[in-house]
Design a protein around this nucleic acid. Sequence first.
DNA 1: TTAATCTGGATTAAATTTGGATCAAAACAG
DNA 2: CTGTTTTGATCCAAATTTAATCCAGATTAA
Lengths: 224, 224
Amino acid sequence: MGRKSFSDVALELRQSIEDGAYRRFDRLPPSRVLAEEMGVARNTLREALYQLEKEGLIETRPGSGTYVTADDRDGVPYAVEHASPLELIDARFALEPHICRLCVLHARREDFEVLESLCIQMENSVDDPLAFSEADTVFHKALASATRNNLLLWLIGQINTVRSLDEWNRMRHLTLDQQIIRQYNAQHREILNALRSREPERAAVKMKEHLETARLSLTRAADT
Amino acid sequence: MGRKSFSDVALELRQSIEDGAYRRFDRLPPSRVLAEEMGVARNTLREALYQLEKEGLIETRPGSGTYVTADDRDGVPYAVEHASPLELIDARFALEPHICRLCVLHARREDFEVLESLCIQMENSVDDPLAFSEADTVFHKALASATRNNLLLWLIGQINTVRSLDEWNRMRHLTLDQQIIRQYNAQHREILNALRSREPERAAVKMKEHLETARLSLTRAADT
DNA sequence: TTAATCTGGATTAAATTTGGATCAAAACAG
DNA sequence: CTGTTTTGATCCAAATTTAATCCAGATTAA
């Protein structure tokens, strides 16, 4: 790889924008500066910028500067938006077992009814990974909701906005065969039973097992 | 980096407001002063202020000054903004013990150095509750940072933006006598030692004890 | 009340910075 | 060797920033 071609530069810039180094409405450094930063001639950089402009990522106003127009989902910061699946599952490992403990303390009868119906819904979706996956998300949110702790509920909600979740779910669907779904369902049942019998530690342990299963299935999917 | 454009100035000011350097109803410095402080012409500053006014962050009254009108810390929803101290501490109970476990896995030497210096700083603040409290916050953030999990770090950061934290801290200061600070310091030491000797469960347990102490001191303060 | 002072608003012209364009020389790939 | 791409240099026109004033309303102190 001798010198950088304009398409290399374009790729590099595209990455920077998508990674959040430059955000919407930000002004990029002046072309002269940027060119030097990237170790490339201003002419080459211009070519790359022209390409990005065609793609609608940036807008260049002569005399003023070139500005990022790509609309990142706004409000959700970079750290959350681009968390890796492993970061995500570690965060869930932190939150959800303790959420189970708090559920034992605060859940009411109607919470159990919601959780029960979600369990049934998931058990009826053994051959429909998409439906299962959606119900699964709702189930975990319902757990957080049952703690009556709005802060925790919000944190779980934020975690669910992670963009890599899409990718994660796509991977999951690959591995979400009937056997795995049945295993998840059994674990959900165990969690719910532990909650019903007011055993916080058992519920937490069952949740940890559940997350461990999910992590395994994730890493397995990542290896393929 | 050439000179600052008005959008750079706007960004800088927006940050200052969101970071709390200028709070609601505060009056910004006079435009002439502010312009010089930011190393920019008054004209440019005016352009930036005009932009912020369009965004509804500030209001400018000719002849009087420009005032911050930002109605709420950005994006942080009611649930988070107004979480009760108990909700807050439950969330910390969920996150921080597991953060300790992850620290054991991911912390590097430089992390321990930071934590060590913060411990020392806290131990030198036995008779300065404010300084202690600030270092305490940084300590817990440093723990999250040492997990190398940006998602967790962000979650902890969000938790620290809870407005009731102010109230909590005020209450804490009432109970933050030298004895309690010494107890906290001992617990921080125990946590750090457990991390250093790579004992995840002991670290988690020590953190739970620490949070339990904090909760007790909180409820005690609430009772008075 | 009055007068001095401080505030932002507005307008100018000059200096600076910005991206746009071009072209010959150099580096590279085949 | 030949054709293509990158480079580096230069000039251009547009946009922005600057700096220096003056203005009118608000505030403050006498």
